[in-house]
Design a protein around this nucleic acid. Sequence first.
DNA 1: GTATATGCAAACAATTTGCACGCCT
DNA 2: AGGCGTGCAAATTGTTTGCATATAC
Lengths: 132, 132
Amino acid sequence: MEKGIKRRNTQQRKVILDILRSTNTHPTADWIYEKARQYIPNISLGTVYRNLKILKDEGLIIELNDGKQSRFDGRVDRHFHFKCLSCNRIFDIETTDVVSINEEKLKEEGYHITGYEISFTGLCSHCQQEKN
Amino acid sequence: MEKGIKRRNTQQRKVILDILRSTNTHPTADWIYEKARQYIPNISLGTVYRNLKILKDEGLIIELNDGKQSRFDGRVDRHFHFKCLSCNRIFDIETTDVVSINEEKLKEEGYHITGYEISFTGLCSHCQQEKN
DNA sequence: GTATATGCAAACAATTTGCACGCCT
DNA sequence: AGGCGTGCAAATTGTTTGCATATAC
């Protein structure tokens, strides 16, 4: 939040960011914690949460709302998500031009839109096959 | 979940649904609980949660994800939401034709889309004025 | 009458925080 | 050396659940 904080580059934060950048599974804090323990055995869950918040504030990761649990994404370029209703996994959608928003209409209604989020739901290709 | 359950029409459930249908503020469970106590003073928070789940299963209300808290909406026709980043209130967007999705592209990528959710963010008209 | 719904309180799950110590810079 | 970051555990917050009783049908 504050501007004047001098951040230190800690091992913990580096490891957490690396973990998030090397997966596309949109993991939970707990999953990241377990993974991080492979590199820093005595890292604490509180530290994971604190660093996730910092990384998010710095714009290096994104926080996703998945029910009451947060999930995290190391990919920060504009992209959409797809959640499979069968296996509950979240996938990245690679195509970027799947959505178009009529900003004029929204402005007419009095809203100053600065952003939006879309999440698609359905069946992933793996679960589609399983249904047969 | 089960099909064969015979539901009873309880006062509690009726009051909760009425409350949700007479507001457009997308309240939390706790807000609904406080409001419901005006009509049924000894209603419990657990009952509010249980009935919200039932009403949602029956398609009479919608559950919204707002951070780690759930919010509820008695309006079930297709509509989008706008969240003001300043006052954190959630508004209904009345225009329905603000978004178009290219379903073909999505199908090509292997996803069988059955639904999607959009939420817009920005400044509501009230907070826009306050910034001056 | 009978089984579903309730109130209450305890249990849970995800996340946050206070504190003394550790380790970047 | 100084102060931000850490580990640990306890605290908080939002939600769920077990149980005995109440009530809709």
